[in-house]
C-alpha cells in the first residue's frame, strides 16, 4: 500500500518534470534535427527527429563557407578574452584597495561602484556610440571591447571575496616584503580563484551572447561576433533554407553548452551571482 503510493508519487514527479523538460529542450533538439536534414525533408508536412537522408555534412559545410562563420567564432573568442583580461586587470586592484586599504575617498569610490552597478548597459549605448564616433573607433575591434573594460560587478564581487580573506594574510605578506601590487597578483587573486572563475564565466557568457552592442558598434562582417554574424547570415540567406542556418546556430550555441555540461556548478554559480544585475 505504502509502496504503491510512493511509486505513484515518483511517477507524478518524473511525469511533470518530463513535460517541463520537453518545453525547455525542444528548441535545442529541433535545432540539431533541422541541421541534419535536406531542404525537401524540412518542408515535408510530417516530422521526424532523424532525417531519412543525412544532409548534415552539406549543411555544416555550407554554414562554415557561405558566411565567414569561423571568422565570427574567432572574433567571439578574441573579444571575450580581451574583455575578461581587461576586466580582471582593472577590477582586482581597485577591489583590493576598497577591501583592504584605508584612504580618504574610499567611501566615495565604493559608492561610485554601487551607482555604476545600477546602470543597465543599454542606457550607456547612445553616449558610448557618440564617444566611439568622436574617437573614430566605430567599426573596429576596439569599439566592441572598450565599453566593457571595467565591470562594476567585477569590482563588487572581488571586493566581497577579498573582504572574507583575513587581514593577517595581508600583514604577513607585507612583513615578508611584498609590495601592494605584488600582494594583489600573488596573494589575493590566487586565493580568489572561485570568485575569479564565477565572474569570468558570467563575463564570457554575457559577451559571447551579446547582440545589442555589436549591432550598434560594427558594420563589417569580418568584425562581427557570432550572434551578429548569424543574423547577417540569416538576412542574406533569403528564403527559408533552415538546414545551414540551424547548423550555424548549433555551432554558435555548442561551445557554451558543452562547457556548461562539464562545469555545471561553476556556470550556475557564476551566472546567478551576476544575474543580480
Amino acid at each position: 500500500m505504502k509502496h504503491c503510493r510512493l511509486s505513484f508519487r515518483t511517477l507524478g514527479r518524473h511525469g511533470f518534470l518530463a513535460i517541463t523538460t520537453a518545453f525547455v529542450i525542444v528548441p535545442f533538439i529541433w535545432m540539431v534535427s533541422l541541421s541534419l536534414k535536406p531542404p525537401e525533408e524540412i518542408f515535408q508536412a510530417s516530422f521526424s527527429l532523424l532525417p531519412q537522408s543525412w544532409h548534415a555534412t552539406q549543411n555544416y559545410i555550407r554554414a562554415m563557407t557561405a558566411s565567414p562563420l569561423p571568422r565570427f567564432m574567432l572574433n567571439g573568442v578574441f573579444i571575450c578574452a580581451v574583455i575578461v583580461v581587461f576586466q580582471i586587470l582593472i577590477c582586482a586592484p581597485i577591489a583590493y584597495a576598497l577591501a583592504k586599504l584605508r584612504f580618504p575617498g574610499r567611501h566615495v569610490f565604493f559608492n561610485l561602484v554601487l551607482v555604476s552597478l545600477l546602470i543597465p548597459s543599454q542606457v550607456l549605448a547612445l553616449p558610448l556610440f557618440i564617444l566611439a564616433y568622436q574617437l573614430g573607433l566605430l567599426n573596429t575591434y576596439a569599439a566592441l571591447v572598450f565599453p566593457f573594460v571595467v565591470s562594476p560587478l567585477g569590482i563588487f564581487l572581488f571586493r566581497q571575496f577579498f573582504n572574507t580573506i583575513s587581514d593577517d594574510i595581508v600583514h604577513a605578506a607585507r612583513l615578508d616584503g611584498m609590495s601592494e601590487f605584488t600582494i594583489v597578483w600573488r596573494i589575493m587573486l590566487p586565493m580568489a580563484v572561485p570568485a575569479l572563475i564565477a565572474f569570468s564565466i558570467f563575463s564570457v557568457v554575457g559577451h559571447w551572447n551579446d547582440l545589442f552592442w555589436p549591432l550598434i558598434a560594427v558594420r563589417s562582417q569580418e568584425l562581427m561576433p557570432p550572434p551578429l554574424g548569424l543574423m547577417a547570415f540569416k538576412n542574406e540567406d533569403t528564403g527559408i533554407d533552415y538546414g545551414p542556418l540551424m547548423a550555424g546556430s548549433t555551432i554558435v550555441v555548442a561551445p557554451l553548452v558543452l562547457v556548461f555540461l562539464l562545469a555545471q556548478r561553476w556556470f550556475i554559480e557564476g551566472l546567478t551571482s551576476g544575474g543580480i544585475k
Binding site: T21, V26, L211, P227, L230, L245
Partner: peptide, 27 residues
C-alpha cells in the same frame, strides 16, 4: 537542474532563429 538551466545560458539570438523555425506557419 542542468536541463532547465540550459536556455538561460544559450545564445538567445541563435535560439531565436530556432524558435522561428518552430513557429514557422507551414513547416
Amino acid at each position: 537542474r542542468a536541463v532547465h538551466f540550459l536556455p538561460y545560458m544559450a545564445t538567445l539570438a541563435a535560439m531565436a532563429i530556432t524558435w522561428e523555425a518552430l513557429l514557422h506557419p507551414t513547416v
